[in-house]
Design a protein around this nucleic acid. Structure first.
Lengths: 349, 349
DNA sequence: GCTGCTAACTAAATCGTTACAGCTCCATGG
DNA sequence: CCATGGAGCTGTAACGATTTAGTTAGCAGC
């Protein structure tokens, strides 16, 4: 036996003088053979360094790989460092792991034009966020289950939260104390890329970004209810939910002369709000006395600090758990809305 | 053709009246057949809904899956929410993605006693951190490449940083301003689990955790050099690098009567240091005037705040990139030490 | 003694590709 | 006119498992 080639199930069968079926059963179905033979096989396998059936061959034969692919709208580099996406992945991993599955990470923003060759190996797909191109999704094997999170696909079970009411509730809370100069910081909500002040209202609402769009609707509803004309509220936009991208926009906002500087900042995400908090503190502004700030998401970083962020907590971990359970068929595949919770921190009491 | 079964390469070949080899070549090796035939095949494939060769079968035949497994010492739930691990994963993903590979996430802390069935499907393994049990590693296919990060495995290329000198340098910086009451917060450095004050010096240095051990050595060296007996410095320990686990320990430290409360806190990680910062601010202590704090790692969260954390930055993204390059054979497989950088923020000027 | 049943095992087909060897045909060069 | 060679294609043997159907042997019941 040349040690060059790895040992296979067949080799082991020959060595032991039994059929390959018995070896396979010894590893997979203990009830199908006598305990004596099973033990003999397992011992000999260990002695000869056979680590068990090859996953590649098994997956071809059985049609299943025990792999669930998570397709993230953004790049992996971004997603892995984004708290919301990370929590989602945590929840997914937790459930998959408990049921003997593993997680393959893919990005919808495919490198170059080709999708990865290993894409169609997965047993199922969890899609997170708005896909830049739908072609990738249409190329997935149709018979494999697909679950979407925070993004609607036709005829596909989806997990979301109710963004409009959630956003309305936090805005309403903030407006209980009437602001002198409120402002809103949107996330990627303009048709044309715009990192700064939104001057043309008509440029608002890029067709697709329904999540942040709903959040802005909620905010507008709260404004109207408080007798404030939404059109009179200055709006800003950031292109990416990343500190370094948000910082210059927020610096512009805060560096205005005091009589123009907002005293209430409604932010579309905690990342934006935290950046605002940092920049305010660096300028010696007191939060919440000089400036009140709200976020959205409820990430840990916003709660593990002083002052804590006033925000809407969405349970991304639970989103992930549920998505994984749906994919594995442990929960019914349906449209599911998870509840949110208003967290009132010191940043906007 | 019943639409029940998925279309295969062989079906397509029959439909077109060409050999399976030509279909395969049309998808994989354009130079092996005439452009005319290739186009005909690709068109027909699209028309009949054949999405390309099946990854499961291909991986069996070729022996490669284009999948690299990342085995994390901690649970996936922890790792995905830890900034250092996330940055490492980012770096890995970036390089793998650029070279047509995908990333499979595994945890060394296997669920139950069985390792995942899909483990041996990967083409290579990147191991991060101290494995709770080495049996998992010994079961990996021996002919597949293995690269370790922050953890020594015999005869295995490894990527680390020089923890002792890095830790020494930041401690020395902190001690330039002589502290009245310095203290150290260790990370999982006791033999017996201990979340709080370390009273018995003999209990220090759990056999394995060489990283934090080296960091403490560096701190001790700096103390000696400043004429301070390390044994006189109170030491504390936290069991997990998580806010909720660190918080009670740090609360104990800060809630001591003022004459015992430390004025310098050397923390083994940024996570610990940030928790300390938060708790100090909540108690109205001024950092750095009442209390100076240092961390270790250089995570973004520590720099995107005011005051910024004084810390040692290790480039975890680069660690990941390098690990991925080694696994793919793009960089020589060797023992590699990456450099670190002292970041001086306002938390300990 | 015959039938029927179960436990324990085997033989062979199959999963969907890739890769190797070989075949045909036409152009080229001597 | 024959040899040479390459372009373009085909046929088929792996790859390493799982699974179905089938073969024993042993035992119980009548």
């Amino acid at each position: 036996m040349p040690p060059s080639r790895r040992m296979t199930l067949k080799d082991l069968a020959a060595e032991l003088g039994v059929s390959t079926a018995s070896i396979s059963n010894a590893f997979n179905r203990p009830d199908q053979l006598s305990p004596m033979l099973r033990e003999r096989i397992l011992n000999e396998a260990k002695r000869l360094g056979y680590a068990g059936p090859d996953a590649k061959a098994r997956s071809l034969r059985t049609g299943r790989s025990q792999i669930i692919a998570v397709i993230l709208a953004e790049s992996l580099t971004y997603s892995l460092n984004d708290a919301v996406a990370s929590e989602l992945l945590s929840g997914i991993a937790e459930v998959l792991d408990a049921h003997g599955h593993t997680m393959l990470l893919l990005s919808g923003r495919q490198h170059g034009s080709e999708t990865h060759g290993s894409t169609n190996m997965a047993d199922g797909y969890i899609v997170y966020g708005l896909m830049p191109s739908m072609t990738m999704l249409s190329e997935l094997p149709a018979q494999n289950p697909l679950v979407a999170v925070d993004f609607d696909i036709e005829h596909c079970p989806t997990i979301h939260i109710d963004n409009e009411p959630a956003s309305y509730s936090i805005a309403r809370h903030a407006l209980l104390t009437p602001p002198k100069r409120p402002a809103v910081i949107n996330l990627r909500l303009t048709k044309q890329p715009c990192n700064g002040r939104i001057t043309d209202e008509h440029d608002l609402f890029s067709a697709h970004h329904t999540i942040t769009r709903s959040r802005l609707m909620g905010i507008h509803r709260a404004f109207k209810e408080s007798g404030i004309d939404p059109a009179s509220v200055p709006m800003w936009n950031v292109e990416e939910n990343i500190h370094d991208v948000c910082a210059p926009v927020i610096a512009d906002i805060l560096d205005q002369p005091e009589e123009h500087r907002p005293d209430l900042l409604l932010c579309m995400s905690d990342r934006i709000a935290l950046t605002a908090l940092t920049l305010a503190e660096q300028r010696g502004l007191c939060v919440p006395d000089d400036l009140r700030i709200t976020g959205f998401d409820g990430i840990a970083e916003g709660q593990y600090r002083a002052p804590r962020l006033t925000t809407v907590r969405q349970d991304s971990i639970e989103k992930g758990r549920l998505a994984a359970r749906m994919i594995l068929g442990l929960s019914p595949k349906e449209q599911k809305y998870l509840s949110t919770e208003l967290l009132i921190g010191e940043s906007c009491p």
